[in-house]
Every structure is written in structure tokens, then in C-alpha cells.
Simulated assay, not measured.
Amino acid sequence: MRTVSIDGKAVSVFLGNKPGIPAIYLNTYSDEGQKIYEAAQAVGCPPFNLVTVSDLAWSHDMAPWDSPAAFKNGESFTGGANDYLRLLVKEIIPRAEKELAGPPAWRGIAGYSLAGLFALYAIYRTDVFSRVGCMSGSLWFPGFKEYIFSHEPKRRPDCIYFSLGDREAKTRNPVLKTVQENTEEIQTFYQNKGIDTVFQLNPGNHFVQGIERTAAGIQWLLNR
């Protein structure tokens, strides 16, 4: 593993040590890249390169547009996703891929929670990713479902993985309780377009087994 700092973000590259294998880009909340890479090995993922980005301004970099806080005492969202995506595509990807044994077979983008939302949003703003992993994605985000239904991705994705904990929608919070309904509607929307997609329901709430759920999504993307 090699870690470099790019514009204040910590970028770690975990090498699969073979040329022509996929590269998956994963934005992380608390630098859990090493654990996720090890979990992916443990479940028998085929060789791949993992590039993780941490030290993110989470409620800014991952948010597609401004939105009020979803939680009591939470931070408001200030839409910085377009700026961060520009940094990812123009600086982070070229720098990370200098470490690889050769150009990747394909690039995927994945994330958990708000980073799952960002992963899906990214394909509407850039054509560099062909597979998406949206694990426990914050698809309750106000206006996001409507955005998906009214916009076209920059390239048609090869496949999209969705997952959610079966207790995530069981909340009194009127914004968050839409998460399962929205995820299912969005997944059905892609399925009806003939895109290879799946929705996996896992036991537990949002904070259970995030590492394992992320590794499971990566494994699915790699095995398509």
C-alpha cells in the first residue's frame, strides 16, 4: 500500500500486482481502506486494485447539492460533489494509476452511506467509471431520486450494486425513512433499462458490518 496526499485528501493505493485488472475507487469516512481490502481478499475476490480516498469533508465533498441537516444537531449539506469529482478525475485518478502495473481493465466507483450516493451521482457527471457499488447509500437525500429519473448517465453503466440494512428505514426521521423505498425504486428503474443490477437487503441498521457490506458489493462488481 502507498498513501499520498492530494489537495488535503489521503489517497491510498492497494495493488493487485497484476497488469490489466480492474481498479475500484472507494471514498471512505474514516480511512477503512485497509480493512475493506483485507475483507475483500477474505471473501475470495479476484485480483483488483483498490484506491481509497479519506480525509474528506464528508457533508460537503459527497453531497451533490445543498440540503438541510438530516439529523438533529447534524451538519447541513453543502454541495461540493462536483468540485470533489473534478479533483478525483483530474488529479487523484492519474496520480493513483501511476502506481498500477498497467492501465486498469475497467474502473468502478463504490462507497458506503453518503459515499454510496456520491458513487451513483458520479456516473451522471463523468464517463470514467463503468461499474457502481452503492452500499447503504444515502438515497434518502432530498431530490436525488428525482434527479436520477430525469437525467442520463454520461455512459451507460455495465452494472450497479445496491444494498441496505433491513432496519435502516425503520426510523421516525421523515427524511431517512424513505431510504429503502427510494433504493428499491431506483434499482427497479435501472433494471427496467436493462442494466445489470441487484438490491441486497442485509440484517441490521446502518451502522452494522459496514466493512463486510462494502467488501460484498466490491465482490459482486468484480464477478460480473
Rank of each mutant, 00 (worst) to 15 (best):
P174H: 09
L50A: 08
S150H: 10
S136V: 12
K72W: 08
E32T: 07
A122S: 15
A96K: 07
T28N: 01
N223W: 02
T188E: 12
T171V: 15
M135L: 05
Y161S: 06
A169R: 03
V132L: 11
K35F: 04
S113M: 10
A40G: 01
P19R: 11
I6M: 05
A122M: 00
R155G: 10
W220P: 11
L26V: 07
Q209Y: 12
R224H: 12
S76K: 12
G137T: 05
T214R: 02
L164C: 06
N182Q: 13
P142G: 09
I109A: 03
P104T: 08
I93S: 02
A70H: 12
L15K: 15
N182R: 07
D196E: 14
P64C: 03
L117H: 13
S138P: 00
R155Y: 04
I6C: 04
W58F: 11
N205D: 12
T214P: 09
D66G: 08
A69G: 04
P46A: 14
D196P: 04
F71H: 12
I195C: 11
S138R: 13
I123Q: 04
A169C: 09
N182Y: 13
Q187E: 14
Y29W: 13
F144C: 08
T171Y: 07
K170H: 14
A10F: 10
N17M: 12
I211F: 05
L100F: 15
K154L: 08
Y161C: 05
G133W: 03
I218A: 03
L26A: 04
K90S: 01
I186C: 03
P174W: 03
Y161I: 04
N173A: 03
H151G: 05
L139E: 01
S136M: 11
S138G: 12
L88G: 00
